[in-house]
Nucleic acid binder design. Structure first.
Length: 486
RNA sequence: GGUCAGAUGGCCGAGCGGUUAGGCACAGGUCUGCAAAACCUGAUACAGCGGUUCAAGUCCGCUUCUGACCUCCA
């Protein structure tokens, strides 16, 4: 059942058999958020995708060290390296300390991650906490001759690097194309080549976040932190490096160059990239103005939305598409997911009430195999979900007494649903009402059943309609009356 | 302009050489006081034009359209 796992590797543009360097240990690094504003829904999709990968590797028995950084400094804005640090810029506007901004959005990010049931990574390092490591890395790259210093700033020499390495391995672009098609930006007199990028930036008088270094008081370049922190926690060469597909051409390309220049090793075996969330066919992004925040989606408070959708509906919606495909957001698609998710969870809830027969008309093993097959094929969650709907159909049929299942298969079915719905997909039942609602409802349901058995349908319908209006739906079955929250 | 991806039924989305993915919506049926749910059955599909093959959404070429990246982005 645990056949080989295949993972699509951006480096080779193929699905490759996954082989951990140090099995059962797996090192995985994913580029985390820059905490200068709220994470929008598109950001969330990436972290949900890697959450599934993390969860499935764990499920297969790997011991995963999952490192996802927080960029709380060093991420420049505007034209290449001439801009200001994003965090500092925001801080000046709001008259806040940079760390105050970083703290605020870090807390917000964690909240959203938790609401969406995304597991925390094993290590979540901060860029500001690793300036020393970053400075050391710059020193090494300078020593190896792949960088040069100009007036307190240090730049990576891309053309020199490309003479002995392939700078475009990940993006599939060659240097000539890049050179001829890259816009020449102003204010870059210090750089020798137009593709060169900053490793260390000398602080300007107005720079708020700055650290001493051998070259100047300044700040590290953005690409540096991931190289420094992945090496610190996962070593020079680890298993999986991930991030959004939009990080390929610049951030990850530069990261590889830094690592190769410093130690001659490409950081990771498998490069995994998640695709974008689109709205009406266009990438969701802040600059296009079509992005919205998770809490707006939950509450429905955004003009794009007809209504709010629960966090698990959002998660389910995203898992119904493969992580490497673009996923288009629409109200219709959300509503379809909402109903589908309810259907799945409804049958999941029925599982505990199923009775085993002495014979069986279903065989769960092959269904289970197909679930593993789906996930082993580059984490194909939509196919997994299709299989789980088959399980759902079986559960409902058994519950209705239309299908027989024996104890052994029932146990397998329970294991299957628990493993895949809860552990791997990370879905959870949002209907589980705490408090004392069940008792109150049972009382009301009993009242209605009394009316029903005396054929007082006027009263029984009145009760049912009344509950419907406050969001409780009653369903009469052979075994009695059930209720669910709508 | 350059580079790279896509175009699948009313909608969302898998599949990528031969066998109806799945969900939502729709139609018919079973059950039920009626609903709802559930179950059964059904109809719609692979952008266009050529080619390869016994066989092509699935491979190749061209055309059209869309998107991403080339500048910060998950």
């Amino acid at each position: 059942m645990k056949q080989d796992l295949f993972v699509y590797n951006t480096l080779t543009r193929k699905k490759e058999k996954f082989k951990a360097i140090n099995a059962p240990h797996v090192g995985m690094y994913v580029c985390g958020p820059t905490v200068y504003s709220d994470a929008h829904l598109g950001n969330c999709r990436t972290y949900i995708s890697f959450d599934i990968i993390f969860r499935y590797l764990n499920h297969l028995g790997y011991k995963v060290r999952y490192v996802r950084n927080i960029t709380d400094a060093g991420h420049l804005e505007g034209d290449a390296d001439e801009g200001e640090d994003k965090i500092s810029k925001k801080a000046k506007l709001a008259k806040l300390e940079p760390m105050e901004i970083a703290q605020k959005y870090t807390v917000g990010f964690h909240d959203v991650m938790q609401i969406l049931n995304i597991l925390p990574p094993s290590i979540e390092p901060l860029a500001t906490g690793h300036v020393i490591e970053q400075i050391e890395l710059v020193k090494t790259i300078l020593e190896k001759g792949y960088a040069y210093e100009v007036d307190g700033s240090v730049y990576f020499d891309v053309e020199k690097y490309n003479s002995t390495n392939d700078y475009g391995v990940l993006s599939g672009r060659n240097l000539d194309d890049l050179l001829t098609n890259t816009r020449s930006l102003g204010g870059q007199q210090e750089k020798r080549g137009k593709l060169d990028f900053a490793l260390w930036i000398k602080a300007k008088p107005e720079t708020l976040m700055k650290w001493p270094s051998p070259w100047s008081v300044g700040l590290p370049g953005w690409h540096l932190e991931c190289s420094a922190m992945s090496e610190k926690y996962l070593g020079e060469h680890f298993d999986i490096h991930g991030g959004g597909i939009d990080l390929i051409p610049t951030h990850h390309t530069n990261e590889i160059a830094q690592n190769m220049a410093a130690c001659g090793k490409t950081p990771a075996n498998y490069w995994v990239h998640t695709n974008m969330l689109t709205v009406n066919g266009q990438k969701m992004s802040k600059s296009l103005g079509n992005s919205f925040l998770p809490h707006e989606l939950f509450s429905g408070e955004n003009s794009i939305l007809n209504k709010g959708y629960s966090p698990m509906t959002v998660r389910f919606f995203m898992l119904q598409a493969h992580y490497r495909s673009t996923l288009d957001f629409s109200n219709d698609a959300m509503e379809a997911s909402e109903k589908g998710f309810k259907r799945l969870m409804n049958s999941f809830g029925l599982l505990k009430d199923l009775k085993a027969s002495s014979t069986t008309e279903v065989e769960i093993k092959s269904l289970s195999d197909r679930c593993y097959e789906a996930m082993n094929d580059d984490f194909n969650s939509p196919v997994l979900i299709a299989e789980l709907f088959e399980a759902s159909r079986i559960i409902n049929s058994v519950y209705d007494g239309k299908l027989k299942i024996d104890a052994e298969n029932l146990e397998l079915l329970k294991q299957l649903m628990n493993s895949f719905v809860l552990d791997v997909l990370g879905l959870k039942d949002e209907q589980a009402a705490g408090d004392d609602l069940p008792q109150v409802l049972n009382f009301i349901v009993n009242l209605r059943n009394e009316a029903k058995s005396s054929q007082d349908y006027a009263t029984s319908d009145k009760i049912r309609n009344g509950l419907q209006q406050i969001g409780i739906q009653l369903k009469d079955t052979k075994e009695g009356t059930n209720w669910t929250k709508i």
